[in-house]
Design a protein around this nucleic acid. Structure first.
Lengths: 233, 233
DNA sequence: GCGTCTATTGGGGAAAACCCGTAGGTGCCC
DNA sequence: GGGCACCTACGGGTTTTCCCCAATAGACGC
């Protein structure tokens, strides 16, 4: 599992950093970060406007592997207040040093998911009194929800686009057949559905396998999903 | 794929119908509905405060199988305005009769997902001018997002439902074998790799297929990927 | 027209996957 | 102790997929 600091990537990614800054300003927050968990690539991609020193420290220690804001929030539906984390070993490992970098362990993470098992986590922090934090939370949780959805959408669009450019040229017919295969249909079924011979279905499927560099049909389906060519049913 | 009208279930479910009524009242909406999609069984479970006659009509025709508010929104991250649906055959089949029941085709669906591939769709409608609708949308989308999350969370807490929707517990061995299958290995290969009989591999694979509700191995691989059980190679 | 490319269909046979069982050993929980 | 889920293994038979082969028809460009 790799951690990629997208803030080091130029182009449209800079706009995303600015978006986080803007979010902080508008919602009276100290810091904001976004992490995209891709079960497909298995990686974590992050943006944050934390101090550069903390980001570097975090990446060097590979904290994304144990960070409770990631592991816990990724299993939640609703926003998670950091105050609800267990004060366990993992928590201390991450939030102990964080304090030395001027970071406070009062925050909130809003999870958002896409249809491919992809998960985005928008986290924000604010150093203030508990009561202030509670009222702030109530006020901004709706906006955060919306912001998280938009951010995740933008990131996924970008990723989908770049994948498309790298993806092999799968014909319409091949894609169609892969989609039905992923839906659990046999070659005969698909032939009936598309009103073509099951032999033809087999040819297209083989062609798709070759283009995807897959040895078997299940592998081809997996790769097609990873490349965004088809969607799991 | 079954459609179950949860509003016919008593207990806590009645409170959920009231929640929808309350939502409509507070946000100046005509109707609201919620649908939970199960990735495993492929089933749809819904609550709605639509007219009873429409609900019955909808269920009798099994519109949940073709309803664009379901099929399209289930693949989206962000809220989907019904105005953006293709005016295709499916759309007409559902929204044509809807008009006869006093329903307007101006609406919005907010998708929300949990960590197990479960998906909830909160839909709302309001009959008014386009400009009014646009400003209303902007005003309430944050609240709808929050409401959808809470609703989905509440529904998922319900044990009966969560059991049905939750990703089945795939054993370590099954997961391991699914992963190798997705990597393009044959059952014989996997048997050699894991130093077990290829028949045993087949048994595990069959068991995994059954747990995932998949008819074929490619389908099982697709679902396992979506559920985050395995990663494509 | 003529080569080329893609989509289509087909045969035959080998290989793999799938379905129906049975069955022993393990570990866990009530 | 008994039930339950898991991992392991085997057999026989059916279905499906896969592979190598050939062939036709339409589209496209030169």
């Amino acid at each position: 599992m790799d951690l990629i600091d997208l803030s080091s990537v130029p182009a449209a990614d800079e706009a995303r950093g600015e978006f986080l800054d803007q979010l902080c300003e508008e919602l009276e927050l100290d810091y904001a970060s976004y992490a995209a968990l891709s079960p497909v690539s298995g990686g974590v991609q992050g943006y944050a406007n934390y101090p550069a020193a903390w980001k570097e420290f975090y990446m060097r220690r590979a904290f994304h592997l144990i960070d409770p804001t990631i592991s816990t929030s990724a299993r939640s539906i609703a926003p998670v207040d950091w105050g609800r984390f267990d004060r366990d070993e993992r928590f201390k490992t991450v939030f102990g040093p964080a304090r030395d970098f001027g970071l406070f362990s009062q925050g909130l993470t809003v999870p958002v998911r896409g249809p491919y098992g992809d998960c985005g986590l928008l986290s924000v922090t604010r150093e203030c009194s508990s009561s202030e934090w509670r009222s702030l939370k109530r006020k901004i949780v709706g906006n955060l929800q919306t912001a998280a959805v938009h951010f995740h959408d933008a990131v996924m669009q970008g990723e989908a686009l770049s994948r498309m450019l790298r993806a092999p040229q799968i014909s319409t017919r091949e894609k169609e057949i892969l989609q039905w295969v992923a839906a659990g249909k046999s070659q005969q079924d698909i032939g009936d559905i598309l009103a073509i011979s099951h032999r033809t279905v087999e040819v297209h499927l083989r062609s798709a396998r070759e283009k995807l560099g897959a040895l078997t049909t299940p592998q081809a389906v997996g790769r097609a999903i990873r490349l965004g060519i088809i969607t799991p049913d």
